[in-house]
Each structure stands twice: as C-alpha cells, then as structure tokens.
C-alpha cells in the first residue's frame, strides 16, 4: 500500500532530512520525490510504500504532523487511493 506525503511551507534547511529520518525509523520506503521551491515557498510531494511500516497509518501520520510542527510546515499524509480516484478515470 502506498501513501502520498505533501509538505508545504517556507523553505529552510533540513526538511527532507527530518522527514526521511522519520520514515526510515519506521520502515517506510520512499518510492518517488518531487519538489519545487518557488521564491521562498517549498512544496514537496513524496510517494512512499508503507507495506513494511512498523506503526499503523494514523500513528505515522501523527509522527509526520509533529515533524511538520517542528519545521513550521504543513504536512499531509494520505492514502494514494484518493488521488487516483479523483484524477484518473
């Protein structure tokens, strides 16, 4: 099962480092990353595989929410299914 993690906020150092550390610690594999910095706004979308995740989905989302708070950024962790449903026929 795959999830999409989006991170939006003011650019700073250590964003990807902090989030990938959390993912690594809980057995989440990063499948793809796309990021943009427009002026000083940072937007990253990460596709991850959570089959071997050591905590359940809501715990993972909570941990990433905490990372977002520490970074001063908004992080959404959502199942891939919702994007497929809305944007693919």
């Amino acid at each position: 099962m795959r999830a999409v993690i989006t991170v939006v906020g003011k650019d700073r150092t250590g964003i990807i480092a902090k989030i990938s550390e959390t993912l690594y610690q809980h057995g989440v594999n990063i499948v793809d990353i796309s990021q943009n910095v427009m002026e000083d706004m940072f937007a990253m979308v990460m596709l991850v595989n959570i089959d071997k995740c050591t905590v359940d989905f809501t715990q993972l989302a909570d941990l990433l929410d905490k990372d977002g708070e520490a970074l001063g950024m908004k992080i959404h962790t959502m199942h891939e299914d919702i994007f497929d449903a809305m944007h693919k026929i």
Binding site: R2, V4, T6, V8, D32, I33, S34, N36, A43, V45, M46, L47, H76, E80, I82, F83, D84, M86, H87, K88
Partner: peptide
C-alpha cells in the same frame, strides 16, 4: 500512480 503528479495532488489538498 507510477509517477507523482504534483499538480493533481496539490489541487486535491487545496
């Protein structure tokens, strides 16, 4: 989803 479509994903979140 084999590739990330940032535009679609950000649209949904918006």
């Amino acid at each position: 989803m084999s590739m990330i479509n940032t535009k679609d994903i950000l649209e949904t979140i918006k």
